[in-house]
């Protein structure tokens, strides 16, 4: 059970208020029609599965309903930082 700081509500909330939405920073191609099947497949299906630092998209589903990013260590489950959509992480894997 993670304890997650919501950057919009500005406080910690229980994990059950949130939904995990997978890897963060998956950008939809600006011109999907110009993508090859392989490019589209990679956008659609290919995700990282790192041991250690990982950037994830979460939504405060039972609270403010805002999406935001979480940098989490997948091994220790430590949350290193949270940041709003559109922002860049300050902590990244080496």
């Amino acid at each position: 059970m993670l304890h997650i700081y919501c950057p919009h509500c500005c406080e910690y909330r229980e994990e059950e208020e949130f939904h995990a939405k997978g890897q963060a920073h998956i950008v939809r191609p600006l011109d999907p029609d110009a993508c090859t099947d392989q490019e589209w497949g990679e956008f659609m299906y290919f995700r990282k599965n790192p041991r250690g630092i990982h950037h994830e998209l979460w939504v405060h589903a039972a609270g403010c309903r805002k999406f935001f990013n979480v940098t989490r260590n997948t091994q220790t489950y430590e949350i290193k930082e949270v940041y709003k959509v559109g922002e860049k992480p300050t902590i990244v894997a080496e």
Partner: peptide, 10 residues
């Protein structure tokens, strides 16, 4: 004001 879960509702 806190929007949150209430049992299995909200």
């Amino acid at each position: 004001v806190v929007s949150t879960l209430f049992a299995k509702s909200s």
